[in-house]
């Protein structure tokens, strides 16, 4: 089942990339990033069946980083929403020259 798992992982990662590129809602873009992290976790778990449990240790580290990223990212989104009253990425253009 290794080849199927890696193919599913690639497909989920590509769906996440397409979501990041097509959506303008900052929260949905963040959720697409979480989907990409999940795809990577799936290939870690599938390969850990061959190489021992070290891959699962990395999955737990990835989950920790994802939780930290979600907390900080959503706090940033709340701060931006207070400032601009929107989470649409097209209206968040402070860095545009």
């Amino acid at each position: 089942m290794l080849a199927e798992s890696l193919a599913l992982s690639a497909a989920l990662f590509a769906i996440g990339v397409v979501g990041v590129l097509t959506r303008r809602n900052a929260i949905i873009v963040f959720m697409c990033v979480e989907l990409m992290l999940n795809a990577v976790n799936l290939s870690f778990v599938a390969l850990s069946k061959l190489y021992g449990a070290t891959g699962q240790v990395f999955v737990i580290f990835v989950m920790t980083v994802a939780a930290a990223e979600a907390a900080v990212g959503l706090a940033i989104i709340i701060a931006i929403f207070r400032h601009k009253q929107t989470v649409n990425l097209q209206n968040i253009n402070l860095l545009r020259g």
């Binding site: 690639a10 590509a14 990339v17 397409v18 590129l21 097509t22 959506r23 303008r24 949905i28 649409n88």
Partner: peptide, 20 residues
């Protein structure tokens, strides 16, 4: 209504297909 325009979606679909 937060989808990007037609060209943005086409480009994103192309990038996703290219990755796979």
């Amino acid at each position: 209504n937060d989808m990007r325009g037609k060209w943005g979606r086409l480009l994103a679909g192309f990038v996703g297909l290219a990755l796979v």
